[in-house]
Design a protein around this nucleic acid. Sequence first.
DNA 1: GAAATTCCGTTACAAAATTCACAAACCAAG
DNA 2: CTTGGTTTGTGAATTTTGTAACGGAATTTC
Lengths: 214, 214
Amino acid sequence: MAVKSEHIPKATIARLATYIQVLSEFKREGTDVVSSERLAEACSVNSSQIRKDLAYFGEFGVRGVGYYVQDLITSIKRSLGIDRAWNCALVGVGNLGRALLRHREFTRKGFIIRGAFDCDPYKIGEMVEGMEIVCSRQLPAKVKELGLEIGIITTPPERAQRAANYLVGAGIKGIINFAPARVAVPKHIHLEYVDFFHYFYAAAFHIRFDEQAD
Amino acid sequence: MAVKSEHIPKATIARLATYIQVLSEFKREGTDVVSSERLAEACSVNSSQIRKDLAYFGEFGVRGVGYYVQDLITSIKRSLGIDRAWNCALVGVGNLGRALLRHREFTRKGFIIRGAFDCDPYKIGEMVEGMEIVCSRQLPAKVKELGLEIGIITTPPERAQRAANYLVGAGIKGIINFAPARVAVPKHIHLEYVDFFHYFYAAAFHIRFDEQAD
DNA sequence: GAAATTCCGTTACAAAATTCACAAACCAAG
DNA sequence: CTTGGTTTGTGAATTTTGTAACGGAATTTC
């Protein structure tokens, strides 16, 4: 499913993920068809917004009717490139790394962690969730062998750059960095920073600010 | 530290969090003073962007010099309202909930989880990380007793709304929802959705899209 | 089967965010 | 004390994003 237009706003991608979530809820409730208006309300966005977001990727609705829930889920997934599984490598098996390895949702959402890497000799060889922790030096071999495409960094901040270098050198295509540190990568590598404290900061700010506004 | 202007863009808040992260790295390296230009490069944003973001909250720089790293960290933290600790309640002690309870970074960042709640009778009374799991019905009492202000929802999606209701009823001021479900709350309650699969979706999309663009 | 209704896709418009550009402020050197 | 080299803070210009309005396609009603 090709994109219609050249550039797609980052915000649109984020909203598509929300649409999938809400559509899945509709599906569970047994709703087959939904209008942009009703979907918009459930997502707390404008209905034009939804129609426009979807228009970047194609025509998925039926005029006078709305969107078929299951079809739309499928179409959005295809548009996002999550209509297939992605093989992932996790680098840094600390507390956070272990939590992610244990998190069943990854496999369910199509992001399958196939390799766990660490450079600590005490950890190498240990089994976590049925997976053996492997030395980071073996990344190039494993990336080829298992077809790994996305790297997940869960090291301490000071080791994040090294993990990124390993991943890039091994031929990974994209990196999701959970470590609280910026890393430099060649610009053909897609890089995302995950830091859920951002959300806490935003909450703290608004709570404090809203109180002042009274 | 009061805000200068009425409305502050959501994106600005997100960037301030990034600035803190990068400034902390500068501090660790022993850099005392930094220009908006250098900070901008490290954060991958425009230098005017930084100056404008900061201008919402005050004048923190010195013309001809730049920003004093430690002072700027302090100023941004005060601006965001994270110059003090926030007491949090976690509702839903499953895999994700336990992972967050174990995550040391929360305390270090000033978001202290003081109560763990669940409605499963088999879990109530269990100790997790030195904290006793308490019945969700006790939320109102505990919120008052411990001064809890922020609620963290880590229940399965179908129980997220109930958790939100409990939290709101107990007088919490803000909610961070890690459950993959939308919830409805009164509009004076600040609500943030956390879903790190968003980042994976974005990565999947760009990797696939960039390949096509070759 | 015609009219009325619904609702998508798209274009035009409005709002918001980002970037540019420059005056004012500061420091250092002579 | 003045000059030169920096760098901030901010109003103006530009770009991007979001919203409203509307034509046209599908369905339902009579």
